[in-house]
């Protein structure tokens, strides 16, 4: 596929819609939102492509993990965002399947004075549904459920609060998010 193709054709409007979905997702862990407007090269999902176009640029080091680290994806990201590729310890964003991203404790969790200086992991999922582990915490009215890739690492991440990484889970044209504040329990 041509590296020029698959970007936003109306960036201001499409990224505004995409960001609103990301904002709602991060604000309400467990909710699933549909996004569109980008057609990234395989193996990236539409939702992962939209997330990268909406949030990444030349100021945000990005780590590509596993199958996502291929020439087509690298070229597409370089052309559309200019995001510099980086190792896990320098990454502001990281993109790949959970298996490819593991061990996830490689990623920045922020500084005690600046807990915002932490990575956001964009996790490509084979399945994304409102079932599985029970979620509680800020943004959740009583409880929610989400098909998470695992729970132990996420519980360990929660224990670091206010430090920790945050997740954006992508599958096809759908996404959900899991900030570090969410408490995760096996159902």
């Amino acid at each position: 596929m041509n590296q020029l193709a698959g970007g936003f054709h109306d960036p201001a409007i499409q990224s505004a819609h995409a960001f609103r979905a990301l904002l709602e997702a991060m604000a309400r862990p467990g909710r699933i939102h549909r996004v569109g407007g980008a057609l990234p090269p395989a193996p990236l999902s539409v939702a992962a492509g939209v997330t990268v176009l909406t949030l990444a640029d030349a100021t945000t080091p990005l780590h590509l993990a596993g199958a996502a680290d291929c020439a087509a994806v690298r070229d597409w990201i370089a052309f559309h965002t200019g995001a510099p590729l980086a190792g896990p310890d320098q990454a502001q964003f990281a993109l790949g399947t959970w298996q490819a991203l593991e061990p996830v404790d490689r990623f920045p969790v922020g500084d005690p004075a600046y807990p915002d200086r932490s990575a956001t992991l964009i996790v490509e999922m084979a399945r994304l549904d409102q079932d599985g582990p029970r979620l509680t915490g800020p943004g959740i009215h009583k409880t929610a459920r989400l098909s998470l890739p695992e729970t132990d690492a996420l519980r360990a991440n929660r224990a670091l609060f206010p430090l920790g990484f945050d997740l954006i889970l992508t599958c096809g044209d759908r996404l959900a998010a899991l900030p570090r504040t969410t408490r995760v329990e096996e159902s």
């Binding site: 990301l22 904002l23 991060m26 949030l55 640029d57 915002d116 945050d166 900030p179």
Partner: peptide
Amino acid sequence: KRMIRRALLKALAVP
């Protein structure tokens, strides 16, 4: 806008 949006997502993650 991207810079502000990134800050907003982190702000939600660390209430």
